[in-house]
C-alpha cells in the first residue's frame, strides 16, 4: 500500500518535471525574439537587454534550466510583463475561482450521474432509461460554455433567478458564493455527469450479469442489498476511473465557462496572457493546470485502493 502510494507520487513528480521541461523548451522555441515580442516593436535595445537579464535569458542554457527548475520548486513563476506583480499572486487570485466552478461541477455531475446511471441500468429499455440516455447524449453534445449561455439566458435573463455575472468569494459567505457559481457549476457539471452516467450504466449492467449476482439472488439476499452492496460497489471502480480522467473535461469546461459569466479565473488569465504575449503568465497557468490534474489523478489512484482491495495488495492495476 505504502509502496503503491509512493510509486504514484513519484510518477506525478516525474510528469510535472516532464511538463516543466517541455514548457521550458517550448518558450525558447517561439519564433523570433520572445522578449522583443513581449515588449513590442518600439522598445529600446536597453529595455530588451534589461528584461532579458531579468528573465535570465542572457545566461547559458543549462544555467537557465537549473534556475527555472529551482524557481518552480519554490512556486516562483516570475513577473507578469503587462500586469506587473508576481505571476504567483495572479495565479493565487485566479485559481480558487476556476477550482470552485470545477468543484461545484464535480458535485453536481456526480450527484446526477450516479443515481441516473443506477436508475437507467435497473430499468433498462424503460422510459427512465431512455430519458436518462437522451439527456446524457445532449450533455455530451454541447460544449460547456454553450450550456452556460443557455442557462444564463433562461435563469438569468428570462426568469431573473440567479446572477449571471461575477464571482463572490467564499469569505463573504457560503450561500452568496454558491449562488454566484451555481450556473457555471451546472454548465461544467452537465457534460461531465453525462459521461459518468453512461459509464455507471454500462458498468452496472455488466456487473449485474456476473455469476456472483446470481449466487446472491439464489441465497435469497434481498434486492436492495444486492443492488447497492453487491452490484453498485463493484460497478463503481471503472466509474471512478472515468470520473478521474474526465476531471480534465471539468477543468477545460471551467476555463471556458468562467468567460461566459465574467469570472476572472485561470481561463481569462490564460487567454489574456496569450493575446498580450505575457509569456510568464501563460507558463504559470499551464503549469498550474497540469499540477491540478496530476494531483487529482493521484487522488483518484488512491481512491482505487479504497474501492478495490486487489490494488492494495499489489495486484495488477487495470
Amino acid at each position: 500500500m505504502k509502496a503503491y502510494i509512493a510509486k504514484r507520487i513519484a510518477y506525478g513528480i516525474f510528469v510535472m518535471w516532464l511538463v516543466a521541461t517541455v514548457v521550458f523548451f517550448g518558450l525558447r522555441a517561439i519564433p523570433g525574439d520572445p522578449v522583443r515580442t513581449m515588449l513590442g516593436p518600439e522598445a529600446t535595445d536597453d529595455a530588451v537587454q534589461s528584461l532579458r537579464a531579468e528573465l535570465g535569458l542572457d545566461q547559458p542554457m543549462h544555467v537557465q534550466y537549473i534556475d527555472w527548475m529551482t524557481d518552480l520548486a519554490m512556486f516562483e513563476f516570475g513577473r507578469s510583463i503587462t500586469k506587473g506583480g508576481p505571476v504567483s499572486s495572479l495565479l493565487a487570485d485566479a485559481a480558487p475561482m476556476t477550482l470552485s466552478i470545477g468543484l461545484i461541477g464535480l458535485v453536481f455531475g456526480m450527484s446526477i450521474a450516479i443515481p441516473a446511471g443506477i436508475l437507467s441500468a435497473t430499468r433498462k429499455y424503460e422510459v427512465e432509461d431512455y430519458a436518462a440516455t437522451f439527456i446524457s447524449f445532449m450533455g455530451l453534445s454541447m460544449p460547456a460554455f454553450f450550456i452556460g449561455i443557455l442557462l444564463a439566458v433562461v435563469f438569468g435573463v428570462w426568469i431573473d433567478l440567479l446572477p449571471i455575472f461575477g464571482y463572490v468569494s467564499i469569505t463573504e459567505g457560503f450561500f452568496p458564493w454558491l449562488e454566484s457559481l451555481l450556473l457555471p457549476g451546472i454548465a461544467v457539471g452537465l457534460p461531465y455527469g453525462a459521461i459518468v452516467m453512461r459509464m455507471m450504466r454500462s458498468s452496472l449492467l455488466e456487473v449485474m450479469n456476473e455469476p456472483y449476482m446470481k449466487t446472491a439472488r439464489a441465497k435469497g439476499v434481498n434486492g436492495r442489498v444486492r443492488l447497492y452492496k453487491h452490484a453498485a460497489q463493484n460497478a463503481l471502480i471503472p466509474v471512478v476511473t472515468i470520473a478521474g480522467i474526465q476531471t480534465a473535461l471539468l477543468l477545460a469546461g471551467s476555463v471556458t465557462v468562467e468567460i461566459v459569466f465574467g469570472i476572472q479565473g485561470l481561463g481569462q488569465l490564460l487567454v489574456d496572457s496569450i493575446l498580450d504575449k505575457d509569456y510568464p503568465v501563460t507558463q504559470g497557468v499551464i503549469l498550474v493546470v497540469a499540477g491540478i490534474l496530476v494531483f487529482t489523478n493521484i487522488v483518484v489512484d488512491l481512491l482505487y485502493t479504497v474501492l478495490d482491495p486487489r490494488i492494495r495488495y499489489g495486484g495488477e492495476q487495470t
Binding site: 516532464l18 480534465a248 477545460a252 476555463v255 501563460t282 497557468v285 499551464i286 493546470v289 490534474l293
Partner: peptide, 15 residues
C-alpha cells in the same frame, strides 16, 4: 496526461 486538450491547444497557439 497532465493536460486537457483545450489547455494544450492553447499552449501550442501561444508558442
Amino acid at each position: 496526461w497532465a493536460f486537457p486538450t483545450l489547455i494544450l491547444a492553447a499552449g501550442i497557439i501561444a508558442v
